[in-house]
Amino acid sequence: MSWFDLNPENIGYSGMAAATDGGQAISGIAAVSFSTLDWRIYCASIVLIIILIYCLVSVIRRVELNFGSYWKFAVVLSAVAGIYAAFFIMLLWDEPFGLIAEKMREGTFGDSFGTLNTLFSGLAFSGVLITMLFQRKDLFETRSQIAHQQIESQFYSMLGLQQEVVKNFDLQERDGLEVVSRGRDCFKHWAGWIPHFYEEAVGSHEERIADSVSSLIDKHKADLGLYFRSLYSVFRFIYGCNHVDRAQFGLVVRSLLSDHELVVLFYNSLSSRGEKFKKYIYEFALFDNLEVDLLVDVGDINMFDFQAYGSNRNILEMLIRSPSIR
């Protein structure tokens, strides 16, 4: 055996491996590659990374840093880094660790990441498009919310004006010196005038009711005309708006109507002057709290369909017992 035939095994270097690449000998640990590592090493590495992340999160919480929504970006960046690491290991799976540096200097190695870079470029562009769609949705929701707030503001403004009309009512004696009633209490006197005019009227029951309402309105046209127009405007606004709480708006207005106020509205809606108001009566069940004892005749409840009385069980039972009167 000549000097030129010697190799590491012949001269007793037990720490050298026989791995060669391109004529270069690779010794010891340098010959180890990702494929030769035990699977337990990979499992231990994953567990170690999880522990490090947990410790980092614990430190952040302990020092009470305002991490906010940045954790989402951290998760995305960690996922991207993990994908690149997995792709790197896959490319160098059988490459000895001692030759990794030289392998990375090759042009073909850098070109191998072109596919992955193109993939992430496409994902980034898709993310921009998705972000734009979410922004458009948020802008639409913001505009919708602003529109709803404007509707609410306008509704309560109109309701306030209508209540101000009622508040400014006053009934005086004929000599105009003494005030009999103010505000909503005036409706108690107006509701009491309807049976009085009814006794003086002639004809059928419906005709006498119509004459009674006409006489009442003619007697107090200035106050009642303004009241009916203002209340009609409020319900027309509620009926025409597209607010999600439109029904709740109707309940708010209905809750502000007194018992005698409902009686005046009841009989006014039976006249030709209040015909247009009927659809709002049915839409918002305006007579849900109607006191039938205040009517000229209890049977008058049959002049409206059951939708006008909402969930008033007493009135609904009366309608069931006497449907033929309606």
Rank of each mutant, 00 (worst) to 15 (best):
residue 8 P to E: 07
residue 8 P to A: 12
residue 13 Y to F: 14
residue 15 G to P: 11
residue 23 G to F: 01
residue 24 Q to D: 05
residue 24 Q to V: 06
residue 26 I to F: 15
residue 33 S to Q: 05
residue 35 S to R: 12
residue 39 W to D: 03
residue 40 R to A: 02
residue 51 I to M: 06
residue 52 L to M: 08
residue 54 Y to A: 03
residue 58 S to W: 13
residue 63 V to G: 12
residue 68 G to R: 00
residue 72 K to P: 09
residue 75 V to A: 01
residue 76 V to W: 11
residue 81 A to L: 04
residue 96 P to Y: 13
residue 97 F to E: 00
residue 110 G to E: 12
residue 114 G to F: 05
residue 118 T to G: 00
residue 118 T to W: 05
residue 125 F to L: 11
residue 125 F to W: 03
residue 127 G to M: 08
residue 128 V to S: 06
residue 139 L to H: 09
residue 140 F to P: 01
residue 167 K to W: 13
residue 171 L to H: 00
residue 181 S to C: 04
residue 181 S to F: 07
residue 186 C to A: 14
residue 193 W to L: 14
residue 195 P to C: 07
residue 199 E to W: 14
residue 205 H to Y: 00
residue 210 A to F: 06
residue 210 A to K: 05
residue 214 S to E: 13
residue 214 S to L: 02
residue 216 L to R: 12
residue 219 K to Q: 06
residue 222 A to C: 10
residue 231 L to A: 08
residue 238 I to W: 07
residue 238 I to M: 07
residue 242 N to V: 03
residue 252 V to E: 06
residue 255 S to R: 15
residue 270 L to N: 00
residue 271 S to G: 01
residue 281 I to Y: 12
residue 286 L to R: 07
residue 288 D to V: 13
residue 293 D to K: 15
residue 293 D to F: 10
residue 293 D to E: 08
residue 296 V to S: 04
residue 297 D to V: 11
residue 300 D to P: 02
residue 311 S to A: 11
residue 311 S to G: 08
residue 322 S to K: 15
residue 322 S to T: 15
residue 325 I to C: 15
